[in-house]
Each structure stands twice: as structure tokens, then as C-alpha cells.
Amino acid sequence: MPGRSDRMFCSVECRVDAREHPEHPCTMCGLFFRRKTSRTVYCSRSCADRAHSIRMIGTGNSHYKDGTSYSKWFKETRPLIFERDKDACAACSAPYKPITFMRNGAPAQKSNLIVHHLDEDPANNRVENLILLCATCHSVHHHSAETPFPWFAEYTRQASESMTSKWKATATTLLTVYSSTTA
């Protein structure tokens, strides 16, 4: 009779559990793991997140249209708004301060300023619809029954008109390139 150290399971319950829930490979990394439910396909949250990121690239993204998306348009327009609004909150003039944090084990930076859509439509990334706000002013705007900043639309129109011709040409080019995302 084999000794206690030769046993594969600590009890009859563990042996039955292993038979009912065998190990399966993670569909992302291939590591074998015991699923919690029959629908579990990833060994960890990070594998699930990586798989989701891969699925959302290109045509997997519900906002994908002909190789362009309004999120790409936004990313390319964002620096123009920082330049136009002089790296400061348009409402209270709070200056830009980079915030350093860790992303995937490497230091990364984000801004204390938010590019806000005046019409609340994330697909409308025209420069006249975007304004730079600090987190406080952005929160005040969204938590007010009526906007405390009714002058935003006029400000963005005038500020955009007074920019250099190179800045205007870049904004116009972006609008032309991403016009299919506004339809």
C-alpha cells in the first residue's frame, strides 16, 4: 500500500472535484488552470484584459469604420487643443501638470487636464467642440443642472479662429481625414 506522500489528492472530495473540474489551458497564455465555471476561458484577469485588447483592434472595434475611428481622431486632435488653450484650464487657468503612474510595470504620464466635448458627443472631435478643463471645472460642469460656463462655445470658436494658419491647416486635415467617422 502506497504511503501518504504518494497520494495525488488530500481527500476523496479533492479527487472527485478534480475529476469534475479538470484543468484546461488558458486560451490566451496556454497555462493550465482549473476553471471556476464552465464559461471561464482565461487563467487570470490580465489574460482576459489582453485578449479583450486584441479583439478590439481594427474591425473588432464596434466604432471601426473604414480604417478610421473617432477615438483615433480624438488622439490626434488632443494636442491641438492643448496648444490652443495654452496648456491650461480654459475656465480657471489651472496649468498643465503631468501625473506619473505605473502602467504594465513601466512609468507613464497622464495630464491633470481633460479635453471636454461641449456637445457631450465623443464622436464629434471638431476643434470648436473641444475645450481643455481641469478635473475640478470638468466635475463642476457635469454636476450642475445648468452649465456654469455658458461661454465655452464662443470661446472655442474665437480661440480656434485666432490660431496660426499651420494650426488651422492641421485641424482641417484631421477633419477631412476623419469625416467618415462623423456620418
Rank of each mutant, 00 (worst) to 15 (best):
N104E: 10
Q158T: 08
V115S: 03
T147I: 10
T172P: 03
H52C: 06
E128R: 10
M8G: 04
H117C: 10
S71M: 02
V16K: 15
R126G: 03
P148F: 09
C10R: 15
Q158F: 03
K86P: 01
N112A: 05
T68Q: 11
C137I: 01
G105N: 08
S62V: 11
T59F: 10
M8I: 11
M1F: 11
S69D: 14
R35W: 01
W73Y: 11
Q109S: 12
P22D: 12
G105L: 11
A169C: 02
R55C: 05
T156Q: 09
C134K: 00
R7L: 14
S44F: 12
V115W: 05
S71C: 01
P95H: 09
F74E: 03
A183D: 11
S69A: 11
Y178K: 05
T27P: 02
Y178H: 13
A90T: 07
S162G: 10
S44H: 09
D85G: 09
R55G: 05
H117D: 06
Y70C: 00
C43F: 07
K166W: 08
A18D: 14
S5T: 13
R84Y: 05
R39C: 06
Y155C: 04
S71F: 00
S44G: 08
T68W: 02
K97R: 15
A135F: 03
S179F: 03
K75I: 02
C26P: 04
L174C: 02
D49A: 14
A91D: 02
K86H: 14
T176Q: 13
R34W: 06
A88M: 12
S139D: 14
L113V: 01
W151T: 05
N104Q: 09
I99E: 09
V140Y: 04
H142C: 03
L113R: 00
A169T: 14
L132M: 02
P150F: 05
H63P: 00
S69K: 04
E120R: 08
C29S: 13
E76N: 04
K110C: 02
C47E: 07
D87Y: 15
A106Y: 15
F149T: 02
I99A: 01
E128P: 08
H143F: 13
T27N: 05
H63S: 10
V12T: 15
P95M: 08
A91P: 01
A91T: 04
S180P: 09
M163C: 14
N61D: 14
E83G: 00
T172V: 06
A153G: 08
M1S: 14
L113S: 00
A94I: 04
L132F: 02
P2M: 12
R55M: 06
E154Q: 13
E23Y: 09
Q158S: 09
A145N: 06
S62P: 08
H117E: 09
H24L: 13
R78G: 00
A48R: 12
M28F: 15
Y42V: 08
D66M: 03
Y70S: 03
